[in-house]
Design a protein around this nucleic acid. Structure first.
Lengths: 209, 209
DNA sequence: CTCCGGTGTAATCGGCGATTACATTTTTGG
DNA sequence: CCAAAAATGTAATCGCCGATTACACCGGAG
């Protein structure tokens, strides 16, 4: 029976999968009360474990947050890969744009994960191989796509490569952060479509005419 | 003598200008140790006052942070007005762009203030008349300038007004946040000039050709 | 079956936001 | 001019937090 299993679970001295449970609990806390209300104690309580237990698995609160960030980065990588795969066969610039749309869709669907990844103060970004490598992989993919687009003459000749890259990145990041930071109400942005239209406008301006 | 005055100051029961001192102390803390390490106690200590004293002037920590945000918003308004005044006489689109550059310059020169203003979780943005009104004033100025530009035929006809507005805003905001969030090292952004070049590129793309 | 490494508990520390009762100073009105 | 009131700061306290330590418990390798 479920009840017996639950009682059994509660009686067990060892949790069994505390690491995952703590990460999940942390996500829940952020979604319910915001990232600033995360506490290791609260996460421990939700995992049904004593306040000190988490420190067997995470050296510090920052280490726990970093684990959450790594889960987030894994999912972002997956989302970007999916968007990229869906656009396969299109020209490089179309795939490039598709990644941007995928990034935005993912950020809107997972605001908590996005928030943790984008901040470099809550977590020690550089101390994590996962975070650095996956982040760099996505960045390189964008660079390669844009380089391909330029080589095949799909980008207007008078545009500087680095500026186009930085512009596209800043636009997508700015849109996502405006949404997460709660700026959309004051800017009368109706829905997610507005973001995608704006990104498409930018890409159309970049393309060779 | 200064020493006597200082001793006199230290001996005084009433601080004299605790509100300002607390706001200044809070800014110092953020600059030294980051926004997440702000504590009312620390601010009180730096102002040379007991831990409970600040609560005579600020109902909560959030209220203190809101006061800091209002100071920041005042300065941003001033910076935008200055940038706008400097570009007076140029066509509306040039003034529009100048505001963007002014916004970026201000954010880079006052990262602490920018960070507080842009977050809507650390402060209760809507509870402050100052924050809402000044923010809306800047927004309206941008809308008006862009409307003027469109009316005088300086914007390409096939572009949607709202998308251009949102795009410009998101680009500037994204650039500022990438800088503050520490994304520039990984994107190999050399200096502040890169941001300004990228913004200028966007504006050039928008302009009627 | 018995160690022993891994895991969770209990107790503790200093710091925090916040509230309260109290002390002191400044202001003000008769 | 001076006492009462308003304003401002202090001290003590509460519950929660991150983090550390000593101890208890479990479960698998020998």
């Amino acid at each position: 029976m479920d009840k017996d299993q639950q009682a059994e679970q509660a009686r067990r001295y060892h949790h069994g999968n505390l690491v995952e449970a703590l990460v999940a609990a942390t996500i829940d806390i952020i979604e319910e009360r915001g990232v600033e209300h995360v506490s290791v104690r609260e996460a421990a309580k939700r995992a049904g474990v004593s306040p000190g237990a988490p420190f067997r698995h995470f050296r510090s609160k920052t280490a726990l947050m970093t684990a959450v960030a790594e889960q987030a980065m894994n999912r972002l990588t997956e989302a970007v890969a999916q968007a990229s795969a869906d656009a396969e066969g299109g020209d490089p610039l179309a795939v490039f744009e598709a990644i941007g749309h995928g990034y935005l869709r993912w950020a809107m669907a997972n605001p908590t994960h996005f928030q943790i990844i984008s901040s470099r103060t809550l977590i020690d970004f550089n101390s994590s191989e996962v975070l650095r490598h996956q982040n760099e992989a996505i960045r390189q993919q964008m660079i390669n796509l844009l380089a391909d687009a330029r080589q095949s003459g799909r980008i207007a000749d008078d545009l500087d490569f680095d500026q186009v890259l930085l512009g596209a990145r800043a636009l997508v990041y700015g849109l996502a952060r405006m949404a997460i930071d709660g700026h959309f109400p004051e800017w009368n942005v109706a829905g997610p479509e507005a973001m995608h239209h704006t990104l498409h406008l930018f890409m159309a301006q970049i393309a060779q005419r």
